[in-house]
Design a protein around this nucleic acid. Sequence first.
DNA 1: CTTGAAAACTTGTGTTC
DNA 2: GAACACAAGTTTTCAAG
Lengths: 158, 158
Amino acid sequence: MEEIDRRIVALLAHDGRMSFTDLARETGLSVSAVHQRVRRLEKRGVIRGYAAIVNHDAIGLPLTAFVSIKPIDPAAPDDAPDRLAHLTAIEACHSVAGDESYILKVRVASPVALEDLLQQIRASAHVSTRTTVVLSTPYEHRAPVVAGEPVSGQESHD
Amino acid sequence: MEEIDRRIVALLAHDGRMSFTDLARETGLSVSAVHQRVRRLEKRGVIRGYAAIVNHDAIGLPLTAFVSIKPIDPAAPDDAPDRLAHLTAIEACHSVAGDESYILKVRVASPVALEDLLQQIRASAHVSTRTTVVLSTPYEHRAPVVAGEPVSGQESHD
DNA sequence: CTTGAAAACTTGTGTTC
DNA sequence: GAACACAAGTTTTCAAG
């Protein structure tokens, strides 16, 4: 992927509704050229989609938590992600290295709803859980630096 | 916030570039009415913004990790989020309950870049770190259920 | 990648309930 | 106060060079 594509991705990561006209101005390309590139980035899966960034407090899901899970029976086939997919309170599921096997990010309405969710997780995936409650979120959803922008903390020093 | 607003938020969380025309069709309102509602949701901060969902493998940041941090000196003033904000590899920073004080989500290019980032985190915020590397991500960025849609795992059973 | 033109979308105004 | 209809100005989209 080259410079202009990276620029386009960076711009859309920052403002997912930016118009092709503005993208064209920012990149110095014609509108049609940007349009073509964006469609190609979408088709190649570099851009997976677009989403509104929602204030969870405002939509009745003010409680966020990270739930680490570990299989009760380590010998059983591990299909936890599939077994948990129907629980819409789970925003993300990451397979991780370390003591536990997955980290889930969940959003719920209240402590009671969290308790309820944890029971459903344990029952659905036959796992034990360890929960870390989020108290506040200083920042989140920061757009990635796609190289070409000023970089911090990830240069290689060959 | 009432039914139609919740519907609009859910639709935009699922497809952040959906047109007002389509939102109007989905909600049964006129185009102008939806337009007005979306602008109000943005102004009230219910919708914080819009972002492209990016494939991090494709943009040269294939390594994701969760970094839990703990102050070296628990008595010192806690301004870790501010001190870390310049590190663009940090996508999110959550203050959490538990043994550690923050959980960071980071995206880097390689194990070496992660090592480098961890040193910068420790130096910038005067903290110790505990890192959990993400091996794979079965799902992420799932849109929230804004109530009114079929719900799973977060009902209240009064 | 560019031009160019048709179709669709955004966004304001004025009106109605 | 909220929704609708209409219309001007933009933007999206696609074909052809």
